[in-house]
Nucleic acid binder design. Structure first.
Lengths: 144, 144
DNA sequence: AGTATATAGTTAGTATAGAAACTATTTTAA
DNA sequence: TTAAAATAGTTTCTATACTAACTATATACT
């Protein structure tokens, strides 16, 4: 079908994702948050009080990234860090009331953005195949 | 089907692409080139002598990015810039013999990486739907 | 117990994207 | 034809990912 996979799958996927992230960045600008900061806030909201390391795993970030993003979330008073009670190397991370408020706004907002705009005219069947392809690619390169 | 699109489509796509780029970065390390540098080299090979601006459009890069990536490709002696003959603001960009050699190695190498590894066990039908979903998403957010 | 190893987090360096300001030119238009 | 606007490219700043080196603390081993 698509003989040039680098071109028709690799580069085209990369192009599309960049476009989606640009789009989401623009949409989220009114909330003064980036898509990457959103992932961290979302994971934190669902797992309040976990350590920075656990948050990094859940948000799919490496340690330097989670350090930087948490610095930003702290500046914006969306999250705060406390010294861990028993392990003095660690921090426990908490979401603030402002963070909860923003999360409650963004959850439905983003669902609407996906439903009404990004995924418009795409059927559930197509999305199911799309997701299955992603899962297979993940499995294929897993542990590398 | 997938009710939480942000989660099951947005964040999961983002996770997968990051994994693929990490995988490709590792695979390309032996050739001392990154995936982003590769896109530029590939477009340059197919359009030798075009301006930096045209190259930026073809490689899907903004102008600061193309400046930086070309600097790196010049350092590696894979590309070179010449002052444009008629427009003194512009540069014409050329691929070097070393660049051509690397491109001739990488084109088949990457096809094998996709065919045998990244896209293993994914059918042509699934890939067709996958590509169609990407196209629809692109159209949906186009011009934003 | 004391040393070696592992772990949590930070910092620094490279590569990338994107916005904004800047320089040098070219084009447009008054 | 000269002033204004547009364009090509660079530089700077912020945000991100990733690697490696670093600090502080905890765990394991002898």
């Amino acid at each position: 079908m698509y003989k040039e996979k680098d071109e028709h799958i690799g580069i085209y996927t990369s192009h599309t994702i960049k476009a989606i992230i640009r789009f989401l960045t623009t949409e989220l600008k009114q909330f003064d948050i980036t898509p990457e900061q959103w992932i961290v806030l979302k994971r934190l909201a669902a797992n309040d009080g976990i350590t920075q390391k656990e948050l990094a795993v859940l948000a799919d970030k490496d340690r330097p990234s989670i350090t930087r993003i948490l610095d930003i979330l702290e500046q914006k008073e969306l999250a705060r860090k406390e010294k861990h009670h028993t392990d003095r190397r660690s921090f426990s991370v908490f979401i603030t009331p402002r963070g909860i408020e923003l999360k409650n706004q963004l959850l439905p907002f983003l669902e609407d953005v996906y439903e009404d705009r990004i995924l418009k005219a795409i059927t559930d069947e197509e999305l199911e195949v799309y997701r299955r392809v992603l899962e297979k690619m993940n499995r294929n390169i897993e542990g590398v």
